[in-house]
Nucleic acid binder design. Sequence first.
DNA 1: TGGCCGTGTCATCTC
DNA 2: TGGAGATGACACGGC
Length: 646
Amino acid sequence: MQIAKKYFTEGLIQLTILLSLIGVRVDIDSYLSGYYTPLIEINLGPSSAYTQTPFHNLRDTLDGYSVHPKCPELDHFFASRRLLDEVRNLGSPRFPTQLNAWLVHQVSATNKADGGPSTSNNTDTSSGLETPGDGARDDNEHLPDNGQEVCQTTPELGHGPCGAGACGFLKEEDDAKVKEEEEPAPLTQLAHSSTLEEESLLEGITALPDPAHHHPPTIDIDQHWSNLLSLSVTDLDDLDSLVTDTDITRAISQDVSLHDAMLNSAGAFGVAPERGEARPVTQQQRTFFRLESTGSSHSDASPGMALGLAALPFASVCNLTANESSHSALGGCLDEAVFDQINQLGLEGLDSIDTHLMGCLESIDPQVLEDLDSDSGLSLESSSGGPASPGSSEMSSSSSSYCEDECGATGYSSDVDSVPSKGIVDYTTTWSPVDLSESVWHDHSYSSPAFFNQPPVTLPHKGIKEEPLSDDDSPRLEDRDMSRDELRARAMCIPFSVLQIVNMPVEEFLEVLDGHGFSPEQVTLLRDIRRRGKNKLAAQNCRKRKLDAITGLQEEVERLQAQRDRLLREKQLTAKTMGAVGQQIKQLTRDVLARLRDDSGQPLNPERFTLQCGANGRVVVQPVRRPAVSTSTGNKTDKRKKEKKQ
DNA sequence: TGGCCGTGTCATCTC
DNA sequence: TGGAGATGACACGGC
């Protein structure tokens, strides 16, 4: 249960950080303007298709900076786009409004405590966001009544875990808006948006049960976390029931937003809802946990997995190899804790397998190796298991440097259907030298959003492929499901998985080559596996970049075409304007000259005189200078014409 | 059955 | 000099 609490808490921390980050960087476009903020790295790390640098590389850099050293601009561009997509995918676009509501509440409390003006930066943040969330806020504003009516139209608030407490928030938001219209919001409040939103989030979780009592802004966050951590086993076990009792019937008709998820999560944290339906709550819970995932979009988490898994023994979660939802539900929660366990495993136990290795080498069937070498169609992915199979491999079990889930490239993934969960589990337990007695679940696949969107592993042709076999046929089935490199490595009794070989740092890889007494064939195979694996990742990223480049170029073409059309229209308009102005000048010149008289008292002939405006502003009447001096070419032409006439 | 697409792999280049 | 990444090209399988 401690583990579950830890995961649960870490998930909350991640979600809180995520929300605060979103709230801080309300100007999403700023990410596209050249900033290279840690936020990008944070979001880029676990999910970027271009960040195939494992953690062992990131840990030696400035918090993961220089992720893509060879192409930082392009990487940044893609990372920014990815970040933008992630922010947009977080839920309905109303979440900034709700965050602002928390912020308003917090600011108000702060101001009350400080005796300062009760203002809000709601306008500032909203104006900077330019998101549809403003529209949602406007919808609330346009309601006939505030307060209770707002509660009814925002079921996630009114009937959620906090009840009137949430209404109090919105009321306060409305009040803040009224005050905001009266006096400008101080810009300095923006600087506190991150902290305020984090505190507001915590406050929203813990203080919601008591709507009449608002915690002061100086509330101890540690106390909140202590309260959260103090949830007993029964509390956690009852979370599902609590959640499913929540009445969010009205929320069914709405897109699940970040705010929806948060409020429901708050309801799960010890607030007994009054009534409700199970399905929409579960849906929102899924969204909630998706938010705290590693940036991937698990769209099909299994109902009931959200909080139920938190109470499961960790090993049980790990063994859900065929259940993608397990990863989607608690992936973000588990990752960090999982890596802690990964770090504790290490490669120390590898030294003890040399004896076993030698024994295996002696038992290698030469024919097997020959068959393997004759096939170049290596399939690294098939052995990795992919994100669809959480129990993919034990790659990260040797050290944190092998964490593929957190830092592996999220490029294109393939062969999910070829991922044999059964084979993987057996693979990790039968021949891996690493102690996996704890059944640590690591997703060592080349994590990809496409992977997460894929249905669970039970694919049709896979089912056809897995005909019932006797126990004697199981090894052959595993061999068939494993990738060729895995088979090669297994046949050569190489005590590392493909992903281990691919993702371990070069220093460790060289140490492995030197320190384990591998034969030259084994060394060659290890190098080939590593090369193929890395090249596979590189190819995936290369293709991804290519597609993104094509998309970017298409957008650029469209933009330039629009710009060209606009410039052409401006040109035409300018020409028309110039023509009109010229006509006006001519008319004015004629009028002026008609009013002027020469020495003989006759009006000036516009054909012979014109008006010239000098540099000093004086207007001077000048005789029209006819082109008396023509070019030599013109003279020649005239002469020729004359000669022809003659 | 041919075309398209995604993917893995190899060869090669560059850093 | 070797490792790693990038990328074009090719093969293969699925649709």
